[in-house]
Computed example of a mutant assay.
Amino acid sequence: MKIAQNYKIWFSISSVVMILGLVMAIVSGINFGIDFTGGTLMQFNIGQDFTVDEIKEITDKFELKADILHAGVDKKEVIIKTKKDLPNQKRIEIFNAFKQKYNLEDSDFRQAQQFGPAMGDEIRNKALISILLASVGMLLYITYRFQFRFGAAAIVALVHDTLIVLSLYAILKIPVNSPFIAAILTIVGYSINDTIVVFDRLRENLKYRKRETYFEIADTSIKQTLTRSINTSVTTLLVIGSLYIFGVESIKEFALPLLAGVLTGTYSSIFIASPVWALSKSMAKR
Rank of each mutant, 00 (worst) to 15 (best):
A127F: 09
L172D: 09
L139E: 10
L132K: 05
I131Q: 04
S130L: 08
A170R: 03
L140V: 15
K210D: 04
A157G: 09
Y190N: 09
R228P: 08
L202S: 01
L166E: 05
E204R: 11
H160R: 02
A218H: 04
F180W: 04
I142H: 00
V188I: 12
L163K: 07
I171T: 07
D200N: 13
T220A: 15
L168M: 13
F215K: 03
S191W: 00
P175K: 05
Y144H: 12
G137R: 00
L185T: 01
A170K: 03
V156G: 10
L139W: 05
D200V: 10
I174F: 04
K126M: 15
F148H: 07
D219R: 07
I171K: 14
Q147N: 12
G137A: 01
I164T: 04
G120Y: 05
I181H: 02
T227K: 14
A218V: 08
A170V: 00
A170G: 03
L128Q: 13
I217L: 07
L168P: 05
T186H: 07
D161P: 08
Y208D: 13
F146I: 11
Q224T: 10
D161Y: 01
P179Y: 04
R209W: 14
R209Q: 14
Y214D: 10
L139G: 11
R209E: 14
P179Q: 11
A183G: 01
R145H: 08
A183N: 02
S135A: 12
S229Y: 03
L140P: 15
R145K: 15
L132Y: 06
A153N: 03
F180S: 04
Y141L: 14
L133K: 03
S130E: 08
Y208I: 15
V197P: 02
R209K: 14
V136C: 10
K223Q: 14
S221I: 11
D121C: 10
S167P: 03
L163D: 06
S178Y: 11
L206Y: 15
A218R: 03
T232F: 00
F215L: 02
I181D: 05
E204P: 06
E216I: 11
F146D: 02
I164N: 05
F199I: 05
T220R: 15
L128I: 15
N193P: 06
L226K: 09
I230G: 02
Q224G: 02
R203E: 09
E212F: 14
I155Q: 01
E216G: 10
I192S: 01
N177Y: 03
V156K: 06
N193D: 00
K207Y: 08
R209F: 15
